[in-house]
Amino acid sequence: MPVLIAHTISEATEILAENPDATILNGGTDLMVEVNFNHRHPSSVLLLRNVPQLREWSIDSSQQTITIGAGVPYAAMETGAIAAAVPALAQAARTVGSPQIRAAGTMGGNLGTCSPAGDTLPVLSALEATIHLSSQDGERIVPFGEFMVGPKKNSRLQHEIITAVTLPITGRRQGYSKVGVRNAMVISVASACFAVVDDTPRLAMGSVGPTILRAVKAEKFLTEATTNLNIISDEIAREFGQIASTEARPIDDHRSTAQYRAHAIKVLASRLAVRGTAS
């Protein structure tokens, strides 16, 4: 079982076309846990970590967007230019695992795994990010809402690699928060991202459904309840959180109960509506 090491995106898609069963490896922080515990036995591996193009990011100032390579580690999103452009993404990145996990783990891997608890995913949902996929057939750009199709399921085709994510630079309020059993090294019990995009409020919720859920009723309520999204009263924020919690579809599992998760969404949504920072 060989490890095939790509150095460019075209080399990676070529390897994948020739080895359709190859398992893609980036930071390894999801994949190696499964390999160590005998849950996965890859027959061959395509390593993307040594593709410099996947570790780049760029800002398009005419479109007001930022495109972040699938191999950029979380550590590079926590502060600096990426954090300034998309503060909610930086907030999400800072909550992932530990410094060691953030030095290795990537957004490409978060999207590859597509867990409802993946911390970047509510941010991609609220900001309506697009996912770039590459294969020998060319490039495909898919909105996040069509990318994640179920718990740990996405619409990536077997011969495609995730190359990058494009997000809008909104210049408006946005924020990400999660609830877990402690501060460091914790998978979320419930999470939420609030963002104002094109003067409309958006709320995406993680760990409370099979995919990341958008709280469309709460978004509509907030649009109608206020004319200035920069100043949201505590009372409106509370109502916003209340509505959002009715849109969550949580379950009981080993991490928490459905009832607590719905409560957590209420609190997270109302706090984020008041507190988010501007990019």
Binding site: V45, P99, Q100
Partner: peptide, 15 residues
């Protein structure tokens, strides 16, 4: 970069 060696596939670290 400081990382967990338990999460690095050894054969992927040849470079």
């Amino acid at each position: 970069a400081a990382v967990c060696s338990c999460l690095v596939m050894a054969a992927s670290a040849v470079e």
